[in-house]
Amino acid sequence: MLEIRNLHATVDDKPILKGVDLVIGDGEVHAIMGPNGAGKSTLSYVLAGREGYEVTEGEVLFRGQDVLAMEPEERAAAGLFLAFQYPVEIPGVTNMTFLKTALNSLRRGRGEPELDAMQFLKLVKAKTKQLGMSDEMLKRFVNVGFSGGEKKRNEVLQMAVLDPAFCVLDETDSGLDIDALRIVADGVNALRGPGRSMLVITHYQRLLDYIVPDRVHVLAQGRIVRSGDKELAQELERKGYAEFAADEAA
């Protein structure tokens, strides 16, 4: 579904990604772990098309399409979704308006009819219920005054409503309490299926107990330095990243 080849990217002329290779097949869930500052979020932003993240080499193909040539909204319309590590607050815009505008934009892009207020409400209420969220959060402004965990849940709600084919979850588990982690993981697992692939960025093996990955990768110093199956996560939990941290340790 997604192929990343020799991806190099800079931020403010500073090289962050230095040749990332990653292939994620249909229906697969891959996890990326790695030390702080390794470039995990940078990779997710590059995939989503954030300005200021300059790709200097390499390519990204999503279902054969050249992702890097697309605008962020085109990537979303194609089925890419990034759950942000730091969700953005949007004062004055209710969650409901935001979700409805986003969903209808995607539907328009796909040539599907837009949902009216009633249809949308029904859909979104089913999703909030599934994720154990109160409907009151729909009336509130996007992420404004949300707790850290509520923001993360809100990202998963967006994912559930927008129904993307490929999801990047950037530390969606950070800040969640034990129950919320369970609920979010259940929500994510419910979205798993042959047509949907995921890239789960996390620091904690615990999440991977719930969302069991097909592959685990270590990203360090802008590269995938090691890949393995889910046992790798347990090994990292025990040993840490010392063996990958050549520069940082010096």
Binding site: E71, P72, E73, R75, A76, V88, A102, L106
Partner: peptide, 9 residues
């Protein structure tokens, strides 16, 4: 960017 990443032009 946050809005665009959700498909809003």
């Amino acid at each position: 960017f946050y809005l665009r990443a959700r498909g809003i032009d």
